[in-house]
């Protein structure tokens, strides 16, 4: 690509460093063709950037609210939300004292407890290894319903040959997940056993964990 054309494109993308911008401006002073090129593109971009906010049709919110389904969230959703939503706890001294007492009591109980056998839940956890080929990636993580779609809870480690890998412990069940490349790009696992539509034109990978 022509050097100046590349610079013009990067200028409008917002990617042109200051020194290159100044050099482009210097060239424009003597190059009439370049000046005309930049000016007409500038007109096009300014036209878009000058777009005034549009007025939403009257009564829009009421119409949307009327069309919403009546159903309340299911019990499972409410429990899930209660357990996983972010929240700020506000304590008063009495509540804090009770909580501290409970913690001490529970700590003592755990210290003196000798289990007869390992619990069933622990026995049922399975280690799953996920591999993802991404030689150019700077970092890769896996996000899924098992970690509440957090993008930094389960990072993959770079192995040989551009392959990234991670071991995660999961209880038996079906999980949807995606790899997150460089913290921003969501990619379904190409090696997944199946995929499911997320309802918005994208697909999540699905894995089934069995004992």
């Amino acid at each position: 690509m022509d050097k100046n054309q590349d610079r013009i494109d990067r200028l409008f993308d917002g990617d042109l460093p200051e020194d290159e911008r100044r050099e482009l401006e210097r060239q424009m002073e003597t190059d009439r063709g370049l000046r005309a090129e930049l000016s007409s593109l500038n007109d096009a971009v300014r036209l878009l950037e000058g777009a005034k906010p549009l007025e939403t049709p009257a009564d829009f919110t009421r119409q949307v609210m009327q069309r919403l389904p009546e159903q309340r969230a299911s019990l499972i959703d409410r429990v899930r939300t209660f357990l996983f939503r972010g929240r700020v706890l506000r304590w008063n001294m009495a509540t804090a004292a009770v909580a501290a007492l409970l913690l001490v009591t529970a700590g003592l109980a755990i210290r003196h407890y000798r289990p007869a056998s390992v619990t069933t839940a622990q026995q049922q956890t399975v280690t799953v290894r996920l591999n993802f080929y991404a030689p150019a990636a700077q970092r890769v993580a896996v996000a899924g319903d098992f970690n509440r779609w957090q993008t930094n809870a389960n990072p993959l480690v770079r192995a040989d040959g551009g392959v990234w890998t991670v071991d995660i412990r999961l209880q038996p069940g079906s999980y949807s997940y995606m790899f997150v490349v460089n913290g921003t790009t969501w990619v379904p696992d190409p090696a997944a056993e199946s995929f499911q539509d997320d309802g918005f034109g994208k697909k999540s990978a699905v894995m089934r964990v069995q004992t």
Binding site: T61, M65, R72, A73, R78, F82, R85
Partner: peptide, 17 residues
């Protein structure tokens, strides 16, 4: 998600434009 359907109107008002 906990069933307060009416609160959704705040989001509609906020993002409808």
């Amino acid at each position: 998600l906990q069933g307060d359907r009416d609160r959704f109107s705040v989001l509609v008002d906020r993002y409808k434009g």
